[in-house]
Design a binder for these strands. Structure first.
Lengths: 209, 209
DNA sequence: TGATACATACCGACCGGTTTGTATGCCCAA
DNA sequence: TTGGGCATACAAACCGGTCGGTATGTATCA
């Protein structure tokens, strides 16, 4: 009997391995930041060794950038339900987005955080690659919100003049700041309140219908 | 001949030395974060050696906490003009505060940043001393703003019901997020716009007079 | 078909340099 | 002369990154 073909098959799946490294990176860096997380630690967490790691990524920075990019893609996917349903009244789209954001709370002991916001604070002043990557993600979010606001202006009477892009940046800033403070003050209630006020603010831009 | 009454001396001034260390820490950590800044670097920047440093501070963490505290005191002093002039209409106090915030822009190549916000993002998930210190500073700001909002409610007809504390947290979040995004997107214009919208928001809470 | 050659995935020891922190002693003011 | 302010020298751990090697999959061709 010839050797069984493919016994047990040693899980040789580079794409999955790469993703495991990214997952571990996100998990750790969202807690400890970039400088606070070592490559050894990431490897341990991903069940991988340093040698293997450097086969997949040129250096630690490349991994960090990949993690930021992945975070952005994941975020976009989470918002997709609200952003992409163009059949919906744009104001309702925004409402749904706020609901999604309010639902981000995970286990009660875990803060709602944004890796992009964290990397922004830690890295963007000294590392222009991170700065650019984070700026790209922040822009993406803002442009989506601005698009909905612009659409809303066409369907509803704005109560006063406003620039959708400016308001979108306003909301993005509020959101990033909410997560920052919510984490530090250990209050997810704060985030909910801020989201409620933001929702009222957006509604207040338009005539009551 | 007794020694000349000590002049030219080698500036033996421990309080000033300590402050030099704190100044250097703020300068560096506001750029590179806590983990990204080494004690050696701080000592070099402060014109001091490691031995001297550890005479003044128990460890790096203690220095970081002292720097956060100092940042808070400095901030409070900067806002004092707006916060402490109780003869002023509280709404005018808030306006003056927004003006102060808008004036924080330094040289055009330097972003407006907040050390408390940065340390919040980097440290508060893993280091409870930092978390507590940052939370304290954030609370202080919020309470001052809430105080003015409460006073404003008494002197002006609020257009709708609102909780001063909630609105104050809203404004604090917006402010922290504005600095975060302003830094990463390299736009101080964004901060100005956000402050203008915030000002309008606050004004909108009250009846036009 | 199956031997050979090569490419890819991964391992783990190791390197030079940097990190925080300590041990110790000099110097100057009171 | 004594003690606090500061410098020098050093320790021990840790860092990002390299390197030689091995295991595994795939293309090639007799």
């Amino acid at each position: 009997m010839p050797k069984k073909a493919t016994r047990t098959k040693r899980e040789r799946d580079p794409a999955a391995t790469r993703q495991r490294l990214i997952d571990a990176t996100v998990r750790l860096m969202v807690q400890q930041g970039f400088s606070g997380t070592s490559v050894d630690q990431i490897c341990r967490d991903a069940g991988m060794t340093k040698g293997g790691f450097f086969h997949h990524f040129e250096n630690k920075e490349a991994l960090g950038l990949a993690a930021v990019e992945w975070w952005g893609r994941m975020g976009t996917a989470l918002y997709a339900e609200a952003w992409q349903d163009t059949s919906l009244d744009p104001l309702k789209q925004l409402h749904r987005m706020f609901d999604i954001m309010a639902g981000f709370k995970r286990r009660s002991d875990e803060a709602v955080v944004c890796m992009v916001g964290m990397m922004s604070q830690e890295m963007s002043a000294t590392n222009s690659a991170f700065q650019a990557a984070c700026a790209r993600e922040l822009n993406l979010w803002t442009e989506n919100v601005a698009r909905m606001l612009t659409a809303a202006k066409k369907q509803h009477q704005p109560k006063t003049k406003f620039d959708p892009m400016q308001v979108a940046w306003f909301l993005n800033s509020l959101w990033q700041g909410s997560m920052l403070i919510g984490k530090t003050c250990r209050s997810q209630e704060l985030i909910r309140h801020n989201l409620k006020l933001a929702r009222n603010y957006v509604d207040g831009l338009f005539q009551a219908n």
